[in-house]
Structure formats: C-alpha cells, structure tokens
Amino acid sequence: MAMRSALGRARGIGSAKDGFHHWWIERLSAIALVPLTLWFASAVISVAGADYATFSAFLAKPWNAGLMICFICAGFLHGKMGMEVIVEDYVEPRCVQVAVRIFLNIAVYVLGVISVVSVLTVAVRG
C-alpha cells in the first residue's frame, strides 16, 4: 500500500537541472536545417540523372562536401532529439523506454558516422 503524501509524490526526486540543452539544440538544429534543406534540394536537382563521375566531382568540391556533412549532422541530430521526445512521451514501461533511448542514440551515431565517412570517401577518392 502506498501511503506517501501527495506532495511527496509531486516533489518526487526533484528536478534534473537539465532540459534546456535538449530544447536549445532541437531549436538550433531546426533553424540550421531550413537553409541546409533548401541547399540539399537544389543540389539533388542539379545532379539528378547525372553519371557517377559528375556526382563525385560535385562532392569533391569542399563547399559541397562540407554542406552535405552539415546537412547530415543537423538532420541526424534533430531527428534524434525529436525521436527521444516521442519515445519519452509514448513508450511505457520506463525500462523499455530507457532501452529504446539507448538503442536510438547508438543507431543515430553509428549511422551518422557511416554517412559522414561515405561523403568523405566519395569526395576524396572520387
């Protein structure tokens, strides 16, 4: 039987003294994604239907490779933050929720690193 007071339950184990950074990075990455997505769309259109040599020459330009990597990082970061919030809101029980969040983090970093390395490989090796 739970006899803890209502106030005891509401105060719980206190505040995490954290939360601002998650919120802030989510906003910043969203703002960064606006121009990056526009650039990405125009880039895709410009090389659509082109052969591999044209595409690798496109990526070999530092500007293009750099922006591509920024787009990938911002996209993965924003996606990860958004997914985390969804998981926190909707996944129960808590042990499953924490497990999903750990898996999500690992997956995002692994996929992010692979994507960045792929861009660099194409840019450098052609």
């Binding site: 505040s15 995490a16 003294k17 954290d18 939360g19």
Partner: peptide
C-alpha cells in the same frame, strides 16, 4: 528556475 529546469516538469510542453 532551478527547480523547474527538468525535461519533464517544464520541457514537456510541446
């Protein structure tokens, strides 16, 4: 503000 800074107490507002 210290007491409010928490992913749940405050930042659950979407």
């Amino acid at each position: 503000l210290d007491d409010l800074e928490d992913p749940f107490k405050l930042y659950r507002c979407h």
